[in-house]
């Protein structure tokens, strides 16, 4: 028997001026969802089932921006995506462009378990959800008042941020600008995913678990990016980028999706452990430091030995973790 461990996140890149009561609410939701996972692990539930159950909780709570409360596309619609991976056998499932499925993470699980494929998107994914009899709701269920307002602000900000739509090379980027402001605590210049931090809301939830048999699993779910182009796919459904699990560890990432994709961040944590022989936290630190070039992101991870680790290079990450020996933590800032 190995010690179990669990880590969860509700997105990285938090407005430093987030009101105290919102911070408290975030922590309450994180603690509640974490407890769901802890109870399941204590009851001997396999890691794969735990990550699915916990991500479903996070998706269903409108506080975090996935499932209900998802970010809106430029057209004001919701296009959700999710993935799940079982470290045993490295089985995986992913979905993108889901617009009516209440819990995208469970659809990703069905793709893994019940289809010959590992990734379905848009109409084909919706059709499969109906075939599988998953709970669906009207697209309006996912759209919250808050996010309609956010989209409006994002569109206004998009006009102000002159270089948001221009592809970025080297250090001449929004993110670099944000980095420059990072240290003087100036929230005005801080930018996440092309949006001022005061408007930006972290968009992703995830969970990584090792159960008492030493099996690792990870799952990630997101509404994507506020004001994204329709059809945009981010890192969350991409195996190796937003989500990865193998025999050694499980990882879920969040933040600027494009930076996470370029660095195949989740796989790289595992690859650094596997090929460089670093322990979990060192692998996480290495990848956050060396891999994210100009991008901002964070990640949570567990190892098959029952360690938990997290890392981020931006202002805050909603997160929580617990281990079998009684350690439990919920936090936002460094």
């Amino acid at each position: 028997m190995a010690p179990w461990a669990i880590a969860i996140h509700g997105g990285a890149g938090v407005d430093p001026n987030l009101p105290e009561h919102r911070q408290e609410e975030a922590k309450r939701v994180l603690a509640r969802c974490l407890q769901v996972g802890v109870d399941l692990l204590r009851a001997g539930t396999p890691a794969l089932d735990v990550v699915e159950a916990v991500v479903r909780e996070l998706e269903t709570d409108p506080f975090f921006n996935s499932g209900r409360g998802s970010a809106l596309t430029r057209r004001g619609t919701v296009e959700m995506e999710a993935s799940i991976m079982d470290g045993r056998g490295r089985r995986c499932g992913a979905v993108s462009g889901v617009s009516t499925v209440k819990n995208p993470v469970s659809l990703a699980r069905r793709v893994m378990d019940k289809s010959p494929h590992s990734y379905l998107a848009f109409d084909g994914a919706e059709e499969f959800a109906r075939e599988q009899g998953l709970e669906t709701v009207d697209n309006s269920y996912f759209i919250t008042e808050d996010n309609v307002g956010m989209l409006k602000l994002a569109k206004e900000a998009g006009r102000i941020l002159f270089d948001y739509r221009i592809p970025l090379t080297g250090t001449d980027t929004c993110s670099a600008l944000a980095g420059a402001d990072h240290h003087n605590n100036g929230h005005n210049g801080m930018v996440m995913n092309g949006l001022p931090i005061s408007i930006y809301a972290p968009e992703t939830v995830g969970c990584a678990v090792v159960d008492s048999t030493g099996a690792c699993a990870a799952a990630t779910s997101t509404g994507g990016l506020m004001n994204k182009m329709t059809g945009r796919i981010g890192d969350s459904p991409l195996i190796g980028s937003g989500t990865y699990a193998c025999g050694a560890c499980a990882v879920s990432c969040t933040g600027e999706g494009e930076a996470i994709i370029r660095s195949t961040l989740a796989r790289d944590v595992a690859a650094v452990m596997e090929y460089k022989g670093l322990p979990l936290q060192q692998a996480v630190d290495f990848c956050v430091r060396e891999r994210l070039d100009e991008g901002f992101a964070g990640l949570i991870a567990v190892s098959s030995d029952g360690e938990v680790a997290y890392g981020f290079n931006c202002t805050g990450m909603f997160r929580g973790c617990a281990t079998e020996d009684g350690f439990m933590e919920v936090g936002i800032w460094e």
Binding site: A121, F122, G194, G231, I233
Partner: peptide
């Protein structure tokens, strides 16, 4: 992904890289 009319998918992938803030576009959006 999910292109049904674009003659050369590879060139559209390059345009996504060069002309959008995103990396990956699929189906109707693409």
């Amino acid at each position: 992904s999910g292109l049904s009319t674009v003659a050369n998918a590879v060139s559209l992938a390059r345009l996504v890289m060069e002309k959008t803030p995103h990396i990956y576009l699929a189906f109707d959006g693409a």
